[in-house]
């Protein structure tokens, strides 16, 4: 039972850590699809929602 609970707790913590690591890999489309030749300001929230 102890091992089981420890496993559950570990899985939850690991998942949380992974989620924060994965979030740092995420790029907005306005950044990803911009070449060095373009200066893009704040693309705003229209159609894509906040953040």
């Amino acid at each position: 039972m102890k091992s089981f609970l420890a496993a559950l707790a570990f899985a939850a913590i690991a998942a949380f850590c992974v989620s924060s690591v994965l979030d740092t890999i995420q790029q907005t489309s306005s950044v990803a699809y911009t070449t060095s030749g373009a200066r893009v300001g704040d693309p705003g929230n229209n159609l894509i929602g906040p953040n």
């Binding site: 091992s3 089981f4 420890a6 496993a7 570990f10 899985a11």
Partner: peptide
């Protein structure tokens, strides 16, 4: 530790 690994993977 074996049980921990099993339940980690299983859950």
């Amino acid at each position: 530790f074996e049980r921990f690994t099993h339940w980690l993977t299983a859950s």
